[in-house]
């Protein structure tokens, strides 16, 4: 699948935003601290920025409001509905913290639950597609949820250190979530790389009873929408290398930096270590998301010799 920048930015940014908002909703941090107030605004900006990026790949974005209507059948519609609905408790929580400096437990907990539900809907857009076998597994929503959680906890750790709050208290679950996310991703990759394709050129043409089927001529000599959108291929050796780099940069480095922050205690060094952990994690996450698309093979490629 073609790794469109708009969709990569959307899933990573909104994932981080929802993760941060979900952790803020738990009320573990001092709602009157400047850093926590800024974090509420940052979470909303990440979510809104991600959603705006997602409209960039629409052919007719002015009609995007129509996407709220088919929540009965469509995960994309459910995602849109949940994303908009989640803004209600998120805005209340942010308002209460930024303006009044307090945490409203009910609004906070509802925010946390709805953030998780929205990320789940995002993941299910991909996981529900049978035509893309790589994505069609419960491991996909598990990875999306764990990556959002890990990102949220990492960001919250920075906020906690910066607000003189329980930085060391948050960095432990952050560390566990980062490890958990990459372990789940490793399982996802193992499944992908050992997958026997359910559809082959033989089943796609129904000619398997005669013999082995190979594309002889494409319909047209040039590329078309289908081959551009779904024919993207990344060399397997590079994919494996990139995924190892993603684990190293997005997993191992943040874990080491979190440990460093823990040892540094509450202070400037801890903040710097936690910020670096977030940045490295973000780089790893974008790599992971790029591979999520680039490595996925679409069943239609059975008709295009790819």
């Amino acid at each position: 699948m073609h790794p469109a920048p708009s969709v990569i930015i959307f899933t990573t940014m909104s994932g981080l935003g929802y993760g941060l908002a979900a952790v803020l909703g738990l009320g573990l941090l001092d709602p009157s601290a400047v850093a926590v107030r800024a974090a509420h605004v940052l979470a909303l900006m990440l979510i809104a920025g991600g959603l705006l990026a997602s409209t960039r790949h629409l052919g007719n974005p002015q009609r995007a409001w129509r996407a709220l209507s088919q929540w009965r059948s469509s995960w994309l519609s459910r995602e849109g509905v949940m994303a908009l609905a989640t803004f209600v408790p998120l805005t209340i929580s942010a308002w209460m913290s930024v303006i009044e400096g307090r945490h409203v437990p009910l609004a906070g907990w509802i925010s946390t639950a709805m953030c998780a539900a929205t990320v789940y809907c995002t993941a299910m857009i991909y996981a529900s597609l049978r035509s893309i076998q790589a994505w069609n597994t419960p491991l996909t929503p598990l990875c999306y949820l764990l990556f959002a959680t890990a990102g949220g906890l990492l960001l919250a750790t920075v906020v906690a250190f910066a607000s003189g709050g329980p930085g060391s208290l948050l960095s432990v679950p952050a560390l566990l979530a980062v490890v958990g996310a990459w372990v789940a991703k490793q399982a996802w990759w193992t499944r992908l790389r050992t997958l026997a394709p359910i559809s082959t050129p033989e089943t796609a043409t129904g000619l398997g009873h005669i013999g082995r089927v190979r594309l002889f001529e494409r319909p047209h000599v040039n590329e078309n929408y289908l081959t551009r959108e779904m024919g993207f291929k990344v060399a397997r050796k590079h994919a494996v290398k990139l995924s190892k780099l993603a684990v190293l940069v997005g997993g191992a480095l943040p874990v080491l930096l979190l440990l460093a922050a823990l040892l540094a205690g509450n202070g400037g060094l801890a903040i710097i270590a936690a910020v670096l952990a977030v940045l490295f994690y973000a780089v790893g996450l974008v790599t992971e998301r790029w591979l999520f698309f680039a490595e996925a093979r679409h069943a239609v490629m059975n008709y295009y010799g790819g």
């Binding site: 857009i125 049978r130 796609a204 078309n224 289908l226 959108e229 779904m230 239609v300």
Partner: peptide, 23 residues
């Protein structure tokens, strides 16, 4: 149609194509 392309992704047969001029 908002031109999100998800239906084309869901079709294993490649039966749907986005018109790039009309979106």
């Amino acid at each position: 149609c908002i031109g999100c392309g998800l239906c084309a992704w869901s079709c294993a047969y490649g039966a749907r194509e986005m018109d790039l001029a009309a979106g």
